[in-house]
Every structure is written in structure tokens, then in C-alpha cells.
Design a protein around this nucleic acid. Structure first.
Length: 196
DNA sequence: TAGAGGATTGAT
DNA sequence: TCAATCCTCTAC
């Protein structure tokens, strides 16, 4: 079952980030279907410095974050890596969840081919790598997550609450105190989460 | 319009 | 530890 829009429109972005663990991200690009269970996420909000839309900064890039929950926000990082985010909350409130790692369950060979010769446990263990494996590029920026190219499904299997860890986010030292917020959510001991 | 830097990654 | 690589944002 594809997840419906109300799921993404909730007010607390951290709740959506935590809840997305265990859900399944699908893409169908060039008629090739790939899918993976989300095992690591990070929450971002206009209220804190780690966010591109901090202090309601509205630019061509951040515009998508202000849209209604359920859109994809895809941007290029370091000129090399596409990063996939899920926009949350209602229109006008800039919040998003960065998907950082997946456990592949469908189209594994396709993902291996797209990422080169990486060994299996590592092909989707990081935001740049999973986008490459799933063929997520900036042409999907703004796409709704219940379409035919990219969507998220509820697998029906819950992640045990005691298996979820909330830790600090990575790579945002410039955010000062906000870099210490425990807004990164991982499935503990899962071999597919990104390196710390 | 130029210049600095980044929600990363893989090789050294 | 460092380079790759290009888009985005800011300052002039």
C-alpha cells in the first residue's frame, strides 16, 4: 500500500523521520523497479541552523521544502551526490526528512550495476549512494511520493521501538548547537546503516 | 558576476 | 587526510 499524503503532513518532522524507518522506498526508472527498506533518516526544520531553509530562507532551491508534505526534495551536494528528502508538514512550513540508508529488497542487481562494483552490504549505506543505486536525480525534485516513478509503501512490518536509536546528525558542524540535536534515527545494529 | 563552500564518498 | 565537482548563495 502506498502511503497517503496525510502521513507526511504531520506537524512534528522528527516523528515522521522516526516513523519512516521500516517503510519501503520504491523507484521505477526506465521501467526498472528497485526498492529498499529505510533504515536511517535525519529530520530538518526551518527552526534550526542545519536546515537549508533555516529562518524561513526561501530561495529557488528551498522552495520545494515549503510545499505540502509528500513531495520529494532532491538536491546536489558537493557537486557529485544527489540527496533525497521527503518534505513534511503543511504548505508554508519548511521541514523535510533526509533518507540516509536503505536495505535493498528488490532490483538488487540493478542497484549494483548502477553503483559500480561495490560489495553488497555497502551499496545503499549513505545518502549519496542510495540515490545513485535507486537512480534518484534532480528531475524528481518536487515529485509526489505516490506516483509511478518514486513512491513509499508501508511494508506492514514494524521496527521494534527499542531498536530505534536517536543520535546527532552528521556533516553539519556549521549549525553550531543545532548540530547536537538527536534528530538522526537509525535501526540499531542494522548492517545497512551509513558509517558513523 | 565572481568567489566560497557544501546534509558525501572513496582512494591514499 | 584529501580531492572530486558544480550548484547555490552572498557580496560587491
Amino acid at each position: 500500500m502506498k502511503i497517503e499524503q496525510d502521513y507526511y503532513r504531520r506537524e512534528v518532522v522528527q516523528e515522521v523521520a522516526k516513523d519512516l524507518l521500516g517503510k519501503v522506498l520504491y523507484t521505477r526508472i526506465n521501467n526498472q523497479v528497485t526498492a529498499g527498506v529505510i533504515v536511517e533518516t535525519e529530520a530538518y526544520s526551518w527552526r534550526e541552523r542545519g536546515c537549508h531553509a533555516y529562518n524561513n530562507l526561501r530561495t529557488a532551491r528551498t522552495e520545494v521544502m515549503f510545499r505540502t508534505g509528500g513531495c520529494a526534495y532532491v538536491y546536489l551536494c558537493y557537486g557529485i551526490h544527489n540527496m533525497f528528502n521527503v518534505v513534511t508538514n503543511i504548505e508554508g512550513t519548511a521541514e523535510a526528512v533526509l533518507v540516509r540508508a536503505l536495505e535493498p529488497i528488490e532490483g538488487v542487481q540493478i542497484m549494483q550495476r548502477r553503483t559500480g562494483a561495490h560489495s553488497l552490504p555497502r551499496i545503499t549505506s549513505g545518502p549519496g549512494k542510495l540515490s545513485k543505486a535507486m537512480a534518484i536525480e534532480r528531475n524528481l525534485n518536487g515529485a509526489f511520493l505516490w506516483g509511478n516513478e518514486i513512491w513509499i509503501e508501508d511494508s506492514g512490518t514494524e521496527i521494534a521501538k527499542n531498536a530505534v536509536r536517536a543520535v546527532s546528525r552528521v556533516g553539519i558542524d556549521y549549525a553550531g548547537e543545532d548540530a547536537t540535536l538527536p534528530w538522526r534515527f537509525i535501526v540499531a545494529d542494522n548492517p545497512w546503516i551509513s558509517r558513523s
